[in-house]
Design a protein around this nucleic acid. Structure first.
Lengths: 345, 345
DNA sequence: TTGAAAGCGCTAACAT
DNA sequence: ATGTTAGCGCTTTCAA
């Protein structure tokens, strides 16, 4: 069944069927109605590849993520899928696993399937492969930073806002000895988070201790390893802030293994606020970055380049907020409670 | 740049370029070499939609999952992507969120993008929409059950093997009071797991208590809710087996909330063995079902229908094992330890 | 073994 | 407002 079948059944030309489907305003409403009836009755839908071939628009949006097994990303993908579908786009998701080879393969896949636009949410652009996309004028959207080119939008995450809230929360509880476990330092977003942490520390008048700044890799294992390092160091901080929730969960686990208690022996703050943070033991205080907000902004940014609807924003940068969510992995530093109790007596 | 560019540069016809790319054996090796050189030099790749249009093969494999935010699925998707790409297929992932409307939308998307085959990993087919796929002779692969039609393969998960190991493990520790929190009962896989549990109980000579068979929904919240019900019931079991790990993590959390200890007050076994099960507190004893094995089998089953390679298996069913992984959420029932200690004295 | 040409299903320019 | 037709980039007969 093809467009000819419909044209024949509706007693019009294939051009009219095409126009009807594409909602060209000049079609006679009565004829359009007849065409739609035939389409519905025969359950017809156009061949997307033929359509893409001739129109040059695939109606596919690419989404490149670092690793799909980090719960942050499925939540992001879900939002992206939802918003994209809503606007008639199919999505092509692909993950790099922080591997430059795979990154290059991802770009290739995007190119081969002729995506109309691509969201690169790997929190750090690993290669100048992007030129291939830029050359073909494929609109792109990045997180944090991206090349300053036409067709490129940036989702600016305000790490500082949430992280400052976290540090202030810790400081208010009485913490002065605060560690930070970063993400992979070659990722720009990791650096941004660390910078925001250092700046917030300074705002609170706390001196940073270099021995308490550790590099993690945004995985569970990275979190346990960093916590182990901290434990080996002897001079333990009273609180630790993590660059993402997976790291924090690793920290929680290592503390459990070491027979220490959170938050009694160490307060822990995560970042992302993934769903599972609600049920960790103890429930994780975390800095929320809305996946849905990011997903929506990414699709919007791409659509703004692709379509000329008047309701689409015409900006290069989009702001993404972060906010502290206080749960139970943060409390007074050890000792303070006793003092409080004494004071009460 | 298109096939003509290459043909011209290599001084051959476009037909020869096409044959070269498609590795038709009749092409003169020297000419083929020349063509490949031009292709590499110009960094050319064929337009997939033109190719799909004329050949009728999209080289896209669909993958329908229930919910991408359940960590089991990202791990599955990752494997599926890897194996599919390895064989030259692109993937189209889509999630139903257990919503029949979305399921129907998923099928539609698969149809519109003309997938060559589709893996339906929703653990329970929600609708007879599949006819649309069957009519178009799209090969399908299901988990557990599927329509008995040509072109349909089934991944038979041996739930019984792993679940029996779990029950025996519990029985060996001295448990006789074992509860089960199932998945949504309209899903066939949930029923299978429950049946395997009941059968295993009987094998061990344990009487099932209907009050200890609860229906969950494979989410964290379902797990906490079911555990709450168990707590309210008063007559607490000494162990609980869960239909998936998310449920088990919910149980762990509710126990923590109730001020009870795992495994001292309750032993907990999960199912799936997702990555995070290693770092729950305590680390979760779980029944492993290999995502990668499922992913590989799914792609293999589809390829067996699509390609005529001699090395591809020609069977309708594929077996998937399950195995117990013992960690620290299971132990002796309360009281037994004391007895043991006494005995030691 | 290679080339010429038809045509996959559709959109869009042009003609009516 | 509707129809006719060229052609998107490729694969695949068919002829040489």
């Amino acid at each position: 069944m093809d467009i000819r079948t419909i044209a024949h059944a509706a007693k019009v030309s294939i051009a009219t069927v095409s126009r009807t489907i594409n909602r060209v305003p000049t079609v006679n409403p009565r004829i359009a109605k007849r065409v739609w009836e035939v389409i519905d009755e025969l359950n017809y839908f156009p061949n997307t590849q033929a359509r893409a071939l001739v129109s040059g628009r695939s109606w596919i949006l690419g989404l490149i993520v670092s690793e799909i097994t980090n719960p942050f990303f499925p939540e992001l993908i879900q939002g992206f899928e939802e918003v994209a579908i809503e606007h008639g786009y199919e999505i092509l998701v692909s993950s790099t696993n922080y591997d430059p080879k795979r990154m290059s393969q991802c770009i290739r896949r995007m190119l081969e399937r002729k995506v109309d636009g691509v969201a690169i949410m790997t929190f750090g652009i690993e290669e100048p492969l992007l030129d291939q996309l830029a050359q073909r004028k494929v609109p792109m959207v990045f997180v944090d930073i991206g090349p300053d080119q036409p067709g490129v939008s940036i989702l600016k995450v305000d790490y500082h806002h949430g992280i400052r809230q976290g540090v202030q929360h810790l400081a208010a509880l009485g913490h002065r000895r605060i560690a930070f476990i970063s993400g992979p330092m070659r990722l720009h977003s990791s650096l941004s988070r660390l910078n925001a942490f250092n700046a917030s520390l300074e705002e609170c008048g706390i001196n940073p201790n270099p021995a308490w700044i550790l590099e993690g890799d945004h995985t569970l294992e990275g979190g346990t390893a960093a916590m182990q390092t901290l434990l080996n160091g002897g001079d333990l901080p009273t609180a630790v802030m993590c660059s993402n929730d997976m790291t924090a969960i690793g920290v929680l686990h290592k503390m459990y293994r070491a027979g220490l208690r959170v938050p009694d022996d160490l307060s822990v703050i995560g970042f992302d606020d993934i769903h599972i943070a609600e049920v960790t033991i103890p429930p994780l205080t975390s800095i929320q970055m809305s996946r849905f907000e990011i997903a929506r902004a990414a699709v919007t940014a791409l659509r703004a380049q692709l379509e000329d609807a008047k309701d689409l924003p015409h900006q290069r940068e989009f702001d993404i907020r972060t906010d502290l969510v206080v749960r139970e992995s943060t409390s007074f530093p050890r000792g303070t409670m006793k003092n409080l109790r004494k004071a009460k007596k």
